[in-house]
Design a protein around this nucleic acid. Structure first.
Lengths: 120, 120, 120, 120
DNA sequence: GTGGTCTAGACCACG
DNA sequence: GTGGTCTAGACCACT
């Protein structure tokens, strides 16, 4: 289930959007699966429907879901494609960080060790 | 010199704080060196003094500088220590990202390739 | 056969209307040919009859079909006339777009190239 | 000045966004020029500030403007770049329409005549 | 003062 | 019932 953390620096609608994208990437939803309705999710999370609406609009902009008037919101692509895209984004961030660490004089072995720890 | 980019998504005070931390890490300032006064830096950058004040407060919170009432703001530690700390922070972020990529099923070789590209 | 794409940004009734008009223009229906009944088409496409009803109303508004109470819906004109009208509509849109591009300072040759590419 | 037409099928925020983009493309605003504030434009057009806010968010998404918290909204790129992009979009639409007309059996000369009329 | 977010309540189009 | 839009009013962060 989706959890809202009011101490999070991200705004509520971003948390909702990120959370649902996360689940979509994880394959929790099958392609074309219907998401909870705006009003339903709003009452579940005790959040204003407008905020959920905004989160769904954000996800549509990201290409994660598509919406059909009068029917609901649906997962747009298969989780595999979303996963590939997400991994690619992470790679971009890692590259930037590694370059930054290098320019600070970090040891090549140190940097490699970060990866080896997690990457087994 | 410090450059402000109004198109940057970061707020002004964050840009100032990040810029000064960057310089401190790079060794531009010697330990206990005095930073420009709030007013002076404000006029130099054509920015509201309140914004500089906030940037300095942010840096104090990060432990990069310390302030002495009636005297000014000073670099808190030597650049070497700051550099180590910064590298450590980057390492933490990289580890998190790598772990995240792994849990998404990213190939170990793919992840290593991110690092190898930049790490030479 | 008519195909409904729920990912299409157009609403269902618009897709149905456009699809039938397309077939009429292509000459799939002879003039005064009877269209499937609202209920029949609804069950065929697994769609609410109200939606089909609205699509037919839309087509009547466009002058593509006419309805006779108690009898059904029929193609209003021959495909040749429909085709001419459709082409004329497209021409109107192209003229508007070209004028718009011109006023933005687009090169005459550039604009001609758009047409030449497709128009062989 | 910007005009809102309540009979327009487009929503209000879209009309505002399109209108401002139009002006930006036309070079009415110089690069980095400040747009009217959300509240000011709202009162000018007798529209809710939230709606203007949404229009500005839309424009930021399109890359037409950028916003700085506490300062305002500003034109992001030079009008020349925007104009090129816009012309390119129009070209795409024209190509689609021409292809469609061709498939309906429209005469090549007829299609060319559409362009010639406007393109002098 | 500025933009950004959230809530509450309402209306419309679509199915 | 669904999503989409708009209004009104409020609060926060930033300058």
């Amino acid at each position: 289930m989706l959890q809202i953390d009011y101490r999070d620096t991200r705004s509520i609608y971003e948390q909702v959007a990120d959370g649902i994208e996360e689940m979509a990437v994880r394959g929790v939803y099958t392609p074309d699966a219907q998401l909870p309705s705006v009003r339903q999710l709003a009452t579940e999370l005790s959040i204003n429907p407008n905020t959920i609406q905004r989160a769904y609009a954000e996800l549509e902009g990201r290409g994660v879901i598509y919406s059909v008037k009068g029917k609901g919101n649906f997962i747009s692509a298969d989780s595999e494609a979303l996963r590939q895209r997400k991994i690619c984004e992470i790679g971009e961030q890692v590259r930037t960080l590694v370059a930054s660490a290098r320019s600070l004089g970090a040891d090549a072995k140190t940097i490699e060790s970060w990866v080896e720890e997690e990457n087994k």
